[in-house]
Computed example of a mutant assay.
Amino acid sequence: MLGSLWHGLKLRLTTQRRLPKKGDRVVMAMSGGVDSSVSAALLKQQGFDVEGFYMKNWDTRDERGVCPSEQDWHDVQQVCQQLDIPCKQVDFVKDYWHQVFQDTLDDYAAGLTPNPDVLCNQHIKFGSLLNKIPDDAWLATGHYCRTDGYGRLLRGREPAKDQSYYLSTVPWTALQRTIFPLGDIPSKRQVKQMAHDMGLLQVATKRESYGICFVGQHRKFADFLGQYIDQPAGQAMDLESGKIIGEHKGLFGYTIGQAAHIHHGSHKWFVAHKDMESNTLLCVPGSTHPALFHQACIARHWTWIHTYRPSSPSINVMAQVRYRQQPLKARLTQDDDGRYRVTFEQPIRAMARGQQVVIWDRDWCLGSGIIDDIVPANLPI
């Protein structure tokens, strides 16, 4: 797609290829779930010298809810014992608080929609953890994506589980030291079957965790954030008429495009905008209202994985603003202020400031930025 624009980069990468070989030491980042457990087993089967590392990112003494971290650590120990590999717990509580959680709180308080998983991968898993392992060792994770030894980040074989979106700010120097054992596995179902066949029964049927672990399995995310963000309730307003239709419980708990849970009239209301200055939640009736669609976004803090910028001021890419969103054709251009504009061929629904916009050349992830502004689509009402 990008053609000769990336030819020079590809030539340079071919001279720096690094591939793992049997007997190499590998530090496996283990979570207590099926993905990292099967990854560890595959590496052991392939003859690598494997050691499991469990990252402790949250101190349960600071949390009034129920965190599954102790059970996860127990599962990691059990799996490693079964595989006959050593394991240890590494403490990144302070790193996580200062480099991920505090920024996440600040963004939510400012009305943004941040992605803490992107920050965690950038600063903790491929930052603090990678810095703890020897220079001659590999890092392995259970992400569904691939790398080719040149430090290129590639999509996983299963489109529905591809997780390269979350790694779009990880530098190629870190990716060149990383192994993704599940990158070529065609389905999550097969991974679970592999766990069963390997005798890893405690993780084969374990419920998959979503989101941030310390929120707990039975708590609402907005309730959790409310312990740290002091924002008052306010009015919910119909964007079209300006009429008050209800009350919100704090703007930090609402996401653009999601149901507002406002009961007024016969409509189902959806969040279109958060006015932080007036503390007002602006809503529209119906999930396909034109106000929910946008044509372009402008991104700050742009990261090129290879610190390589295309020579052309405008290039065609595939882009996503959410994990599991279908990749969409777009045009990337650099604005005069240094930010990047991503213009989609077709309007997309529910873009929000603070989200990560990620670009690819086919399956090759090139980088990403944080959405700073959005451009509405000109759709008829």
Rank of each mutant, 00 (worst) to 15 (best):
T307N: 03
I374A: 07
R353V: 15
F270Y: 14
H289G: 07
G47T: 12
N316E: 11
K249W: 01
W138G: 04
A204G: 11
R152H: 10
S31T: 15
V93H: 02
A296C: 07
Q217A: 11
Q46F: 02
L130E: 06
V170T: 07
W364F: 05
F293R: 02
L379R: 09
D372N: 14
G265T: 14
D103G: 11
G369M: 05
C120Q: 05
A160Y: 10
V90M: 10
D148R: 08
G369C: 04
R18F: 09
S287H: 09
D72H: 03
R349N: 07
H263Q: 06
H294E: 12
A259I: 14
I256C: 01
H143P: 00
F48W: 00
V357A: 03
R64H: 12
K88Q: 12
P181E: 15
L9P: 02
C80Y: 13
A110E: 14
L281Y: 08
V191K: 01
D95C: 14
K22T: 13
V100S: 01
K161Y: 14
R17T: 15
D184Y: 12
P327K: 12
L105Q: 06
L292S: 08
A272W: 03
C365S: 09
R341K: 04
Q326G: 11
L239P: 00
D24C: 06
V317R: 00
H218S: 08
L379F: 09
P114D: 12
A319L: 03
G253R: 05
M194W: 07
Q202I: 14
K268C: 10
D107G: 10
S311R: 00
F221M: 07
A352H: 01
G8M: 05
P114Q: 10
L200W: 00
G367D: 02
F126A: 05
L200Q: 09
Y254T: 08
Q320N: 08
